[in-house]
Nucleic acid binder design. Structure first.
Ligand code: ZN
Length: 253
DNA sequence: CGGGTTTGACCCGCGC
DNA sequence: GCGCGGGTCAAACCCG
C-alpha cells in the first residue's frame, strides 16, 4: 500500500518535474523572441529615423564583391543589438571572440560612452574591429557595430557550448531576471534564465534565429499536446489537484 | 614580466 | 584657419 502510493507520488513528481523543465524552456524561448522583437524594433526605428529621404537601397550580396550600390558602399559593417543589464556598465559583449579595447569616447548625442575594440588576433592579421555603445533609450540594450571578418577560428577555450547552453557568458551581461513566472514550489528560488546567445545572438538577419524559435515553439507545443492527451497524466493531475485540495487540513491562500 | 585596460593626446575629415 | 566630433595611439597603469 505505502509502496504503491509512494510510486504514484514519484510518478507525479516526475511529471511535474518534466512539466517544469518544459515551462522553463518555453519561458526561455519567449524571452528570446521578445528580445529579438525588441532588437528588431530598435533597428527599424533607427533605420527609419536616420533615412530622411528614404533610399531603400537593397544591399545585395554582402560578402561578395558585387556591391555597386552607391549609398552604402561600406556594407561590411553590421549592427547587432544585444540585451544586457542596464546597470553595471561594463560595456562588454561576449560573442566568442577575444577583444582588446583600444579606446573609449563620449559621443555627441548619447550620454553613454562608446568603446572601441580590436580583435586580439590583430597581430596575426585579423582586421576586425567593433564598437559597443549603449542604446540611448532603453539602456538595457547594447549596440555593437562589427566591421570586417575574422580570418581565424574562434579559439574557444573548452566551454563546449554545443551540449546545452550553460552559463557561458559572464554573470554581468545578458542575464534576464524575471521575478514573475516563478512558481513558489519546490524550486523555491526565482528563475534566472540567461539568454546567452553567444554564438549566434540576435544578429540582424532573421531567418535562422526565427526558424529556431519556431522550432522550439513547435516542439514545446507538441510536447504539451502529447502530455495533455496522455490519460495517465490527466489522471495524475486530477489526483494531485484533488489531493492538494482535500489533503491538507487548512491551506493558506 | 606579459598581457589587457585607462585615459588624455593626437589625427583627420568636414563644415563654416 | 579653426573648431568640432569621431577614431586611434600610446604611455601609464593594473593584474595574475
Ligand atoms: Zn579575429
Amino acid at each position: 500500500m505505502m509502496i504503491l502510493q509512494m510510486k504514484l507520488l514519484q510518478a507525479k513528481l516526475e511529471h511535474v518535474r518534466k512539466q517544469n523543465e518544459n515551462l522553463r524552456h518555453l519561458v526561455k524561448a519567449m524571452n528570446n523572441q521578445c528580445n529579438d522583437l525588441l532588437a528588431r524594433i530598435h533597428e527599424a526605428n533607427r533605420t527609419y529615423s536616420s533615412s530622411d529621404h528614404h533610399h531603400f537601397n537593397n544591399n545585395i550580396n554582402i560578402g561578395g564583391v558585387t556591391a555597386q550600390v552607391p549609398p552604402v558602399p561600406n556594407a561590411k559593417q553590421s549592427r547587432i543589438f544585444v540585451k544586457a543589464d542596464s546597470k553595471d556598465s561594463s560595456l562588454i559583449v561576449k560573442d566568442g571572440h577575444q577583444w582588446r579595447k583600444y579606446g573609449q569616447k563620449v559621443t555627441k548625442d548619447n550620454p553613454s560612452p562608446r568603446a572601441y575594440f580590436r580583435c586580439s588576433m590583430a597581430s596575426s592579421g585579423c582586421p576586425v574591429k567593433k564598437k559597443v555603445q549603449r542604446c540611448m533609450e532603453d539602456k538595457s540594450f547594447l549596440v555593437a557595430t562589427y566591421e570586417g571578418e575574422h580570418n581565424h577560428d574562434v579559439q574557444c577555450s573548452s566551454l563546449g557550448q554545443s551540449s546545452s547552453l550553460t552559463n557561458y557568458c559572464s554573470p554581468k551581461s545578458s542575464i534576464v531576471h524575471c521575478p514573475d513566472y516563478q512558481t513558489t514550489d519546490s524550486f523555491g528560488s526565482d528563475v534566472t534564465l540567461d539568454l546567452t546567445l553567444s554564438g549566434s545572438n540576435q544578429e540582424t538577419r532573421p531567418p535562422r534565429n526565427l526558424m529556431q524559435v519556431c522550432d522550439d515553439k513547435k516542439k514545446i507545443e507538441e510536447y504539451v499536446a502529447s502530455l495533455t492527451k496522455d490519460p495517465s497524466f490527466t489522471i495524475a493531475v486530477a489526483d494531485a489537484v484533488a489531493s492538494s485540495i482535500n489533503g491538507p487540513p487548512h491551506r493558506p491562500m
